[in-house]
Design a protein around this nucleic acid. Sequence first.
RNA 1: GCCCCUGUGGCGGAAUUGGUAGACGCGGCAGACUCAAAAUCUGUUGCCGAGAGGCGUGCUGGUUCGAUUCCGGCCAGGGGCACCA
Length: 858
Amino acid sequence: MAVRYNFNETEAKWQRIWEETKAFQVDEDPKRPKYYVLEMFPYPSGRIHMGHVRNYALGDLLARYKMAKGFNVLHPMGWDAFGMPAENAAMQNKVHPKAWTYDNIAAMRKQLKTMGLSIDWSREFATCDVEYYQQQQHLFLDFLEAGIAYRRKSKVNWDPVDQTVLANEQVIDGRGWRSGALVEQRELTQWFLKISDYSQDLLDSLEGLDRWPEKVRLMQANWIGRSRGIELPFHLTSPAHGVNALVCYSTRPDTLRGATFLAISADHPLAKALANENPDIAAFCEECRRIGTSEEAVEKAEKLGFDTGLRVLNPINGEDTLPVWIGNFVLIEYGTGAIFGCPSHDQRDLDFARKYGLPVVNAFNMPGETTAVAAEALVPGKDVAVEYVEHFANIATATAYDAVEKSINWLEARNLGEGQVRFRLRDWGISRQRYWGCPIPVIHCESCGVVPEKKENLPVRLPEDVEFDRPGNPLDRHPTWRNTTCPQCGAAALRETDTMDTFVDSSWYFARFTAPELSTPTDPDIVGHWLPVDQYIGGIEHAILHLLYSRFFARAMRQTGHGGADEPFRGLFTQGMVVHETYRGSEGQWVSPAEIRIEENDAGRKAYLLSNNSEISIGGIEKMSKSKRNTVDPDDIISSYGADTARWFMLSDSPPDRDVIWTEAGVEGAHRFVQRIWRMTGGIASLPAPGGTAAPDDLLRLAHRTLAKVETMISELRFNSAVAQIYTLANAVEEGLRAAKSGSSSANLVPVARLMIQMIAPMMPHLAEACWQLLGGKGMLAAAPWPLVDPSLLAEDTLLLPVQINGKKRAEITIASDAGEADIVAAVLALDVIQKALDGMQPRKVIVVPKRIVNIVV
RNA sequence: GCCCCUGUGGCGGAAUUGGUAGACGCGGCAGACUCAAAAUCUGUUGCCGAGAGGCGUGCUGGUUCGAUUCCGGCCAGGGGCACCA
């Protein structure tokens, strides 16, 4: 037997065997419970990175474990293949986005396969496959028919150089992230999906997602942003431009008595009407618009206002008059585009009031009281709110929170306003002026307007003969592709040239995996069988958009007859990042980990450049990135240590939801363990066969206890703890082997080693298969059932109980596990150390917690 | 500003119904084997102290026989949202 484990040979061998035996291909099986494990599918950037390795190591562990536990496991893989990088590559390298994408996919597939994942590769697809986006077009048409998709004008960030719409995240300091051009606000007609119709359901259903991280549920809840408030008309003292009243939206009507002004948006219809006749107002509104709404601008922009001269009455008493201002901080998109300002209880309103000399009235003063407001606005506090509500609404008691609800009731009862629920969530704009995406299957006809393409005419294929020599959307300037006929009247018409946001592609791929060959988007029976995904694993960066869009899609697909589940992802796990130390040379240049060596002793850690031994400064630990040169290439790791080592390292030490620090020392440690398991297994296999049947010993008991713990920890996704348990068992097995070599009984070594190997199998599948063979295991471990815990081996005869005096540990006592309380107390008090520590003091009380602890109180 | 999370050895982290703080790994130190190195193995490793012992889970109060765990108040780090009325 070879002393060193040859991972190269073994990993290739078992990957071949798994593939040849189709070990991971599945179909629906009514006899076994299903389990759907899914890792967020990768974007085909060209090479896998360590984040992928971690993601798939986690998912594969679960998939293999569930498979061994008797589940029919669906574990597919695909590619999120549309998007801008392919077009950028096309512009820079004169390569077609399609060729670039499929080449990348081929390269990454090859890399992934070296990881030895239990993927059903027969289901693989890319979202840029025409078969996939054809079905997405089918879904779009159904959504259109159901009123879920619609078109409207909307303000967008327009990059005049790249000639495209930019997402808010792509606008940096008011400039396009690629072109650096000043971004303009344009009104364009865009396609939207009506996600806002589902706001309440998307919010309420978060409650049931008990296998999602609390953090993600909170983030989604905040994003949906439900608020309870009231619409309040403020009547003008004299109507202007046909407007009798300005309607404000407020979530704090309990502060209404402190209102001292009203502010409307520059885009409010009344502001526009006033601007038409007053050039000063027109100029002011223009300035407001110019400042824009980018985050940067918002941060710096001063609160600006313009007094319109109009006056309104406070509805609370119909007497107090308030001036109407135009404010640059009032958003037309939210609420009604008009607010009442209550400077005493809102910092922004206070700043505004101070700047323009508007009165500040403490809304919570009782009649006759004149408590002033200090430099900072009063926090809408609990106590003051109660007093105020008592005063104006005559409500006997109210908690702070009730104050809002009760003031709404009070105002509604007097017909002064109407309670409302509003959401922050806006409809999802899916139009992109890009080539490399799913074409939106509609046609613009001069006489019929916007006409959906007929389903039998799908797919609307992306033309391949396009040029990327200029910015903008090549579909717009394609000579023939746009020209078509109207499906309704047959006249010449033009195709829509916008493509869909790539988030659409990723909003239903998990459903398509259940039947990827189908000529409809899904088969309701099949998708109903597999969905929801039982465990979804991916990065926290998708906590909001991707996961929310997918939840919306699940609802929309059910509504349009495409089946599925209420919620697409039953369990969600958000893994941490892979991070690495950074290194910088004498001139501050980033240095890659491959170019240095580390020395470590009592004096500390130092890094030296391999090329000339000059010292390198060790910087912070940061997310692996090309710019900081702190990446480690999975290919290099797999070829030097093997996939199992990389997987084991990823699973050890760090809890999977936290960042894992990639270190050379850590990888070597993981690899040492691989070699150690191999040596140990070889040693056990070459022992002479023991005769007869073995009585259970401590080692066997430990193995079963470990098995029970490992199962619990895997099901709780605490893989690092499972790994620690396996280490403990391995230490004991090694000790057993050493003892056996010097003559002790080896009777339980083989069965215990087999248990250990089976526990290792989901984490290091290749090594496990090889060891399994060595131990005479039958067949392929990938197809073997998970071992059963023998409950009779979990019980212990004796217990080690700590003994405390007044909560401080003073001794330990070994005692029969079935000893009664009186016996334990007697035995404890008889201990020399305890007698000595008590020093003649009489115990007042002895607390015995069964199987846990004894505490003597004096 | 609002909402949320996290603070444990030199490091990653265990201790998950209030019951032995530091499992397991990394790193360090000492030793064995070796001509030597690598590999491997053994011992040791929270802090203070020669030792007995004492102190220790961000700080600070509290509840409890007993607190890393529960409650109050601070401090530090991280994340999400944000002219949202």
